[in-house]
């Protein structure tokens, strides 16, 4: 190949690379979880003959969510949440989640401060813009009863950031 043709081809490659690459993808990180809950006879509503307390709340900062790598403080995004189907989860137990802090950063966050049930299908959780760090999350389990039986129960919540 002649040098001129080679240079043109190289230029084309560089131009294509610059235009083909989109703006930086927004990144999201989640740390923490809720794995410390143990339900015992001390969780009965009363004495023998009574049922279990049905609702349990995690620590208000049981998890922290970071949104990073946005293009600017006005780069809008949305967090969606869903629960992964799990054979080791009780069908009668619901999982709810809420945001308990705004985190920090140049942008803003809104919504998600009221407990909402997390279903198997993704749903909007809260919105924001720009980089935000340390957004605290709290989880609630509702519907616990003696009918579930003694066992280990696990499920995963999947959080996804969507660039708006």
């Amino acid at each position: 190949m002649r040098k001129t043709q080679y240079n043109w081809l190289l230029a084309l490659i560089l131009i294509a690379a610059v235009h083909a690459l989109p703006a930086h993808a927004i990144d999201m990180y989640v740390s923490g979880g809720w794995t410390t809950l143990t339900i015992t006879a001390s969780d009965l509503v009363g004495e023998a003959g009574s049922g279990l307390v049905s609702t349990y709340d995690s620590d208000p900062a049981t998890a922290a969510l970071d949104v990073a790598n946005t293009s600017s403080s006005s780069d809008a995004w949305r967090i969606e949440v869903r629960r992964s189907e799990s054979a080791s989860w009780s069908d009668s137990c619901r999982v709810l989640i809420r945001r308990t802090s705004d985190g920090s950063g140049a942008g803003f966050v809104s919504g998600g401060t009221i407990y909402q049930e997390v279903g198997l299908i993704g749903a909007a959780f809260f919105d924001g813009s720009g980089d935000r760090l340390g957004i605290n999350l709290q989880v609630r389990i509702d519907g616990v009863s003696v009918s579930d039986g003694p066992s280990m129960y696990s499920s995963d919540l999947v959080l996804t950031v969507v660039d708006l």
């Binding site: 690459l21 989109p22 993808a25 809720w34 015992t40 349990y56 989880v139 066992s151 950031v161 660039d163």
Partner: peptide
Amino acid sequence: AGCALAGSSATLTIHYEATPISEIA
């Protein structure tokens, strides 16, 4: 390589243990 995914996901694990309960009075 330019067609990368625009979103990001992460997982939050929920786990609890229900111990055997037998109370009689």
